[in-house]
Amino acid sequence: MERILFILAILTFSMISLSTNNDILDRQVLVFQSEAIINAVGVAEQILEEISLESFDEETTNSQRVSSAGDLTSVLSLGSDGLEPSDDDIDDYDGRVISFDAGRIPGFQAIIDVAYADTSNPSLDAISPTYAKRVRISITNPDFMTDSLRIERLFTYY
C-alpha cells in the first residue's frame, strides 16, 4: 500500500513539475516573441528611413525632373537597374531580401517589395507609373515570430 502511495506521489509531483515547466517555457517564448517584434519593427523602420534618402525614381536622380508619370520607370522594370550607384532610387530595392540578426535574436529575413500606388486609391497597386510608390517590407523569423510582420510606407514624387 505504501509503495502504491509513494508511486502516486511521485507521479503527481512529476505532472505538477512538467506543467510548471511548460508554463515557464510558454512565458519565455512570449517574451522572446515580443522582443522579436520590437526588433523587427525597428529594423523595418530603419530600412524605410534609409530608402527615403534615395531619389524617387531613376529618372529623377541627379536633380533630373520628369513632367509626366509616363516618363518614370515602367512597372515591369521596377527593381535594381544594374546601373551604378546600385541603390540610388526607391525601386532599386524591389525584390531585395535582407537577412539579419537583431540583438540576441537571430534569423530575421526582410523582403522588400516596391510598387506604384494607385493615386486615387493608394492601398491598391497601379498598373502603370504614378507619382506614388509604395514600399512594403515583410519580416519573418520562423523561430521567434508566429506570423510575418508587414510595414509599408508611401513615397511621393512631390
Binding site: 522582443e35 520590437i38 526588433n39 525597428g42 529594423v43 523602420e45 530603419q46 528611413e49 534609409e50 527615403s52 534618402l53 537583431a102 540583438g103 540576441r104
Partner: peptide
C-alpha cells in the same frame, strides 16, 4: 535586457 536599433532620416536633413 532588450535592444533596439533604428534610423532617422528627417525630411529637414535632405
Amino acid at each position: 535586457g532588450t535592444s533596439w536599433q533604428g534610423s532617422y532620416a528627417p525630411v529637414n536633413l535632405r
